[in-house]
Design a protein around this nucleic acid. Structure first.
Lengths: 273, 273
DNA sequence: CGTCAGGTTGATGCCATTCAACTTAGGTGG
DNA sequence: CCACCTAAGTTGAATGGCATCAACCTGACG
């Protein structure tokens, strides 16, 4: 099994064997494990090591004063929990394990070495950060504009695409090791309404979800239902137009044709200028 | 009038006179103007210069395929529209002027010089980027968990704090040069409901908004109504706990006390600026 | 066999949307 | 100076999506 961080970063930059060796070492030095519902870090914490998810699912979340709380992001293997935290004084949100989790901790100096002395790694980390920001924006749109039905579809599309990037899908299926309650927190719906929306998706035969395994019989149809346009994930981003990378597989024409057509037909309102 | 970028970055790092000189030059080389509703850049655009807002209000926004659209962020003087865009292949959203706008364009090489050869500028830019991300997360929470009333209050709090940082407030007032329609797009509400929510805030005497001028008679009360906790703005972030920086002033209890004293009496005190 | 977490279902009500009309303020031209 | 126009703001009434409250079901597990 490939190192998840390497697999992730390869999507963004063509890493040399040396780059890969360095990353392999950096993620092997200090390993920690967490159980479900344990926090990896909390709001108010001061910067420590940079934490990389190696296995399991993690959530970024935040509490409101009165008890409400929201999931802000799902972090999957290969994702960084707190890149560049060192430049801020404290965490403004928390990060918690959703499943049993393994993480690698990279010390500040070592992380700086990665970013300063390995340009391709540095570039890949940059891109990773920008894609994270783009995902956050897309969540903003979902919450702002999409209906419950579209929101849930969109989230499932996003997760499926991201999991496929790191080789965590099997054909049309993947693990979805979270409860409906967590999906509700992430979509801004109540548990009850999420459950009903999920049932609508099942009834439309867009989604099978059972025993924590998600199957998407027809990804194109789900993408259409979600108004999902994967451009924000910046998948074909590696330096060269690649033939063999994970990113290339993701751009399998079959998957994206629908999305492209949508874009072509979405005209900007000319009166807007 | 100080350079808005310098004023903004000073919040995050103690800039040397040399740093300031360099920034002054970088933002003076190429100036462009845009009228309201003009786009500074559009989804799909390839990376060009780094764009800094010098005056006016700008929005980050994104369209859905079917015509819906959402504002993802307000960019104020001193904010960067597309930092580090160079590492991605294309914009995944658009940026448009809300008012008449002046921007400075910084070429890629020049921007790289800023980040590579001026460590304090580089650090400040980093912090700026992380605070932007934190703001985006906070918007996610607003949309996910807060009611219309809280959402609007929260947005107004945020804008007031950010404007104060760049010296664009006058006592308890500031310009709010956007229509209710734009506020609705940013809060994920319909125009009609935003209008009603605004009237609720007016009735509660938490907000005066007339002729594009916002007055907050009692900031503490508004913050309470919004569940607003300014920690995500990372205001006291400059290297030292400073006495004289904008950030320090923001945390000055006096500002809040004044707000408590008089109510509607001195609506607009045309002091500084 | 009891317990508990996760999932499902029904009944009810409210917050926000939708549709539609009206008002107000600025600007422009006759 | 008024007639007209348009963008922005305001108001009313009806509808509906989603929340809320409260059960109930299911399977895993000690």
């Amino acid at each position: 099994m490939a190192n998840p961080l390497i697999r992730k970063l390869e999507q963004f930059s063509l890493l040399s064997p040396e780059d890969q060796r360095v990353l392999e070492q950096a993620t092997a030095r200090q390993i920690r494990r967490f159980g479900p519902r344990e926090d990896l870090m909390s709001e108010g914490d001061e910067p420590g090591e940079v934490t990389v998810v190696l296995s399991g699912w993690v959530s970024r979340y935040k509490h409101l004063e009165d008890g409400r709380s929201a999931i802000l992001a799902f972090l999957l293997p290969g994702d960084l929990c707190n890149p560049n935290i060192s430049v801020l004084r404290e965490m403004d949100h928390s990060v918690g394990a959703l499943t049993p989790v393994t993480v690698a901790e990279i010390s500040q100096p070592l992380f700086e070495d990665l970013t300063l002395n390995h340009p391709r790694i540095s570039q890949a980390l940059w891109r990773e950060a920008l894609v994270s920001a783009a995902i956050q924006r897309e969540w903003t749109i979902s919450l702002s504009q999409r209906t419950a039905y579209e929101r849930l579809s969109h989230l499932l599309c996003e997760l499926f695409f991201r999991l496929r990037t790191i080789g965590a899908t099997r054909g049309r299926s993947c693990d979805l090791p979270v409860t409906q309650a967590k999906l509700a927190e992430a979509t801004g719906l109540t548990l009850v309404h999420l459950n009903r929306t999920l049932q609508e998706l099942r009834a439309a035969n867009l989604v099978l979800l059972k025993s924590r395994i998600l199957t998407i019989p027809n990804l194109e149809a789900l993408m259409t239902a979600a108004l999902f346009n994967p451009n924000y994930l910046h998948l074909g981003c590696a330096a060269n137009p690649p033939e063999r990378t994970a990113a290339a597989q993701l751009r399998n024409p079959d998957d994206l044709r629908v999305a492209r057509d949508h874009r072509a037909s979405s005209a900007l309102d000319p009166t807007d200028l």
